[in-house]
């Protein structure tokens, strides 16, 4: 049975580089657009890579800054200095 890992983010300028980085780094990601929000789902796991976000943002980015644009999530969270991920893998 399918097990989607998921992040829902604000649909605004601040979140856009993160959304773009997720789409680039997670092949097969499903994008659900809602007014004001975007839900990104991926089978098994979903990762946000600091380097990919920084490349798009043009400045340094601390993965904890995701707190400012995150709306919801599904999966077990793992976070360190280089990435932020949600996953159903063990």
């Amino acid at each position: 049975m399918s097990q989607l890992a998921s992040l829902t983010l604000y649909h605004n300028d601040e979140a856009r580089p993160i959304i773009e980085a997720i789409i680039a780094d997670n092949p097969g990601v499903r994008v659900l657009n809602m007014p004001g929000a975007v839900k990104l789902d991926c089978e098994g796991s979903l990762v946000v890579k600091r380097a990919s976000v920084e490349e798009r943002l043009g400045r340094t980015w601390d993965p904890q800054e995701i707190h400012l644009v995150i709306i919801s999530m599904a999966g077990h969270l793992d976070e360190d200095d280089d990435q932020f991920s949600v996953s159903w893998k063990h």
Partner: peptide, 26 residues
């Protein structure tokens, strides 16, 4: 409650409610 309903607030032109809703949901 906080995702589809607040998205509904945005869709109905209520910028203030969607903002507290998503801010709470963060």
């Amino acid at each position: 409650l906080f995702v589809p309903f607040m998205s509904g607030a945005a869709y109905n032109g209520d910028m203030s409610t969607v903002t507290f809703g998503f801010s709470a949901q963060s």
